[in-house]
Design a protein around this nucleic acid. Structure first.
Lengths: 339, 339
DNA sequence: CGCCTTGCTGCAATCGATTGCATTATTGTC
DNA sequence: GACAATAATGCAATCGATTGCAGCAAGGCG
């Protein structure tokens, strides 16, 4: 039913159908107050009827901005492996929901950000209206460099000296402290810490772990700190060897639920009972934690709010050019793996 | 150091620096045989030096195609919840890797595809060079409709009658059969099946489950089929009630490792030993399966190859306009949760 | 020396939506 | 009825990269 045959763009078609110009269609669809109420309604109806959607490429080109937010998943620095911890999927899920709610699409970047300049030059970077980094990895400097660029970034992680980027994260010091305090208060005296302090978040947890010892007048044995990677296979080799070297520990604070579950399996294989002989605490409270055997006591991060806050903070940076950091609370969820 | 001040585009800047026209720069960067070897080298060097990257919006607009592939995660049809099974994160990770290798970015869509027309009209759809659906959910008809569109799609799932879309998936019938056969051959006689046959993949697994019974001359008790959702909380309520109703089962085939772990925890709480009283088999072989207590026997899908094949198939559809379906093999990984 | 071929390079139109400014339609006022 | 004020619409330039076609230079051939 088209009337004239101007340029053959979709929007022009709509315009012809409505007997108006492209300008009016564009304005109607973006709710400009300049167009008449009835005209807008007519155009809207036609658009819906004909499944019209603006061409994002054209729109982005013209507006010099995109509807895409990139989410960068850090790699495990030790193993250079992708991290498949369910925690990250849950986080991504929440990010996707919140971004969709704000009209953005989520572009997933699954590569190492080894050099900031590389990333600055990447298409993912140039294409994005903003970027969310999940985990700082060992890229603190690179992130600082990226923060200088003109694409707003927000990072999930721990506060580091000289940080120039917006940060959202949970209170890792409190998390480590909660876990260790709980074990010490229940009479455990030789606590191990499983996690790589090379990662800022885990370093903070270790600080909390140490503080708990200080609070309660117990000495920390540095030999009981084991820098396990996120990669399960490698982690298990290290943990197995560690358990053989240190059979007398009576409590372990792990930096992820997955590590905790591996640890429990290895303890089990060695005839050490959880929690009677050794108590184990995980981190994150992923959904399987409650179904572990025994159910895993763990430090819970509120991922839902975390994801929400990341998006909120990013949107603020994009709109107002500024935003504040946010530290989320953590809590200890007590289950069967501890006394 | 710019020389003239033409239009202020990035590419024009490069052109000025190299003393050539934009045309030549464009051709040099896309390796057109039309440009002189030296010219190309010079331009390439300048581009690298100045961190030049083409504007994807402009490029997409002009070429009428994008560098984005959308990946759609199906929702749990029962609970309408996002699925946070680690299986999916691993899959997404592999997809991201393979797509990146082919020069595509991964756009994650985390919404229900309730009506095909809605999705046809969505920005995610219009923006994509191709789409990968992980799981068919109950959207078979919608997928068929989408397959008619001009954006190539590939689906991870099970073969359904009247399917019009490209399919990659594992052999679910074989998977269900393997699991049930193994249990029956080890003397188990009253097997339950935990999974919602409303999902095509799970329906196929149930078929295999039934075939195994037929093969080995055992009757299937339809009452022992429990349609559990992926949502853990809801699943556990159903499973708990089921176990109370049917205390005499001696083997359970579960449709995910997560369900299997929940099941083991619930069996445990009822004083039923795994595998002595009840043997449990999971599905997917996610990395935690081996660390469950007892370690979980499970049907392994080769996710890595699966992801690779999904991307390969999609690329073929995009380039040649046609491609073939692929069925991946599965295997049973035997661990402590079965005799 | 003139003409043709080959090899590069540049010009300018094009992709589809947005928006400042100009223009037209509508309403109100005296 | 004339004119101003206001509301609604249209015109045309613009975003940045690509590419068909035209143009130019260098070299080969007779």
């Amino acid at each position: 039913m088209a009337k004239k045959h101007q340029k053959n763009t979709d929007m022009q078609m709509l315009a012809d159908l409505a007997n108006v110009s492209r300008s009016t269609v564009s304005r109607a669809l973006s709710d400009s107050p300049l167009v008449n109420e009835k005209t807008r309604a007519k155009i809207r109806a036609l658009a819906a009827e004909h499944n019209y959607v603006v061409n994002e490429a054209a729109r982005s080109l013209r507006l010099q901005q995109s509807n895409i937010v990139s989410v960068v998943l850090m790699l495990d620095p030790e193993s250079e492996q992708h991290i498949s911890d369910p925690f990250f999927l849950e986080m991504i899920g929440h990010l996707a929901d919140n971004l969709a709610g704000a009209g953005f699409d989520l572009l997933l970047v699954h590569e190492p950000i080894s050099r900031a300049t590389d990333f600055l030059a990447s298409r993912a970077y140039r294409q994005s209206a903003g970027i969310i980094f999940i985990g700082q990895g060992q890229a603190h400097k690179e992130l600082n460099k990226l923060a200088q660029g003109n694409v707003p970034i927000v990072v999930w992680g721990a506060k580091l000296a000289g940080k120039k980027y917006r940060l959202v994260g949970s209170d890792n010091v409190a998390g480590g402290r909660l876990a260790a305090s709980y074990l010490i208060e229940h009479g455990r005296k030789r606590l191990a810490f499983f996690g790589d302090r090379g990662l800022p978040e885990l370093k903070a947890r270790y600080e909390g772990f140490v503080k708990a010892h200080e609070d309660l007048g117990l000495a920390v044995d540095d030999n009981l700190m084991l820098p396990v990677p996120f990669d399960t296979e490698q982690a298990e080799v290290m943990i197995g060897a560690f358990l053989d070297r240190h059979p007398r520990i009576d409590g372990i604070v792990c930096c992820s639920d997955l590590i905790a579950m591996s640890t429990m399996a290895l303890l089990n294989a060695r005839g050490m009972r959880v929690p009677e002989d050794v108590a184990v605490i995980g981190y994150d409270d992923i959904s399987i934690a409650a179904r572990a055997n025994p159910p895993l006591t763990t430090v819970s991060q509120d991922i839902r709010s975390g994801g929400q806050m990341l998006v909120k903070t990013l949107l603020q940076s994009m709109e107002k050019g500024s935003a504040r950091d946010h530290v989320m609370k953590v809590k200890l969820v007590k289950r069967g793996s501890t006394p």
